[in-house]
């Protein structure tokens, strides 16, 4: 079904999963309303290039669509490095969860 490979997390499908997701599969509704600290992005790029992403970004899955509201600097660092995927901790959420994040 094209679902991403599970590379960690719980095996029984209970609780959040750690998965590599293609960057373009993550919708980031707030991205254009906030600006990142470019020094932080640069530092993260250096560190990710050397040792990879240490802490996965949090992603919420609602009806098969992935939404990211945090990990803004880590996401931009991946974009700038041209990496195709990013390590995500995926939690299932509801429309209500989504609504809370858009307020």
């Amino acid at each position: 079904n094209g679902s991403p490979p599970v590379i960690g997390g719980s095996s029984g499908g209970v609780g959040p999963m750690i998965v590599e997701l293609p960057l373009e599969k993550i919708r980031r509704p707030l991205m254009r309303t906030r600006s990142n600290d470019q020094n932080k992005v640069k530092e993260l790029m250096d560190s990710i290039r050397q040792i990879g992403l240490q802490v996965p970004i949090d992603v919420i899955e609602v009806d098969g669509t992935y939404y990211g509201f945090s990990g803004c600097h880590r996401y931009e660092a991946h974009q700038k490095l041209g990496l195709p995927t990013i390590r995500c901790k995926i939690r299932k959420g509801t429309k209500e969860t989504l609504r809370h994040h858009l307020r």
Binding site: L30, G68, S70
Partner: peptide, 8 residues
């Protein structure tokens, strides 16, 4: 709005 949401 709230503490601990996943918004930066």
């Amino acid at each position: 709005p709230l503490d601990f949401t996943f918004v930066c």
